[in-house]
Amino acid sequence: MRKFLSIPTLTAAILALLPSWALAAGPKAADLVVVADTRVLESGVMKYFANLYNENILLFAVWAVVLTAVMGSVLGVLMDVIMKSTGLDLTKRKILEH
């Protein structure tokens, strides 16, 4: 039986190990705070986002998600147009069970 190797079992094993690693590392635990160095940035967009990172991380997070989603969709639509122009039939395909 190889079921003992299943993914949930491994996950549980790792989760069980983590607290012991934490204890072994002792009391030096402190949050790591990162400040983006806006002094060295010249471009306005970069400066805006780096500053937002320092000042309003929630807004930065909303921006990150929105921009990622928008960029993904735009690229998706764009690529779709390009692929359509190749003339390949992408609506149906042979069912290929490997």
Partner: peptide, 28 residues
Amino acid sequence: GAFTYTLKGRIELVAVFVMLTGAAIGAQ
């Protein structure tokens, strides 16, 4: 995941966009 990692301050948007552009072409 992107939202929660950004809130925790652990994301580099510039790298995200560079990779995303490459990935868009590759994914096709």
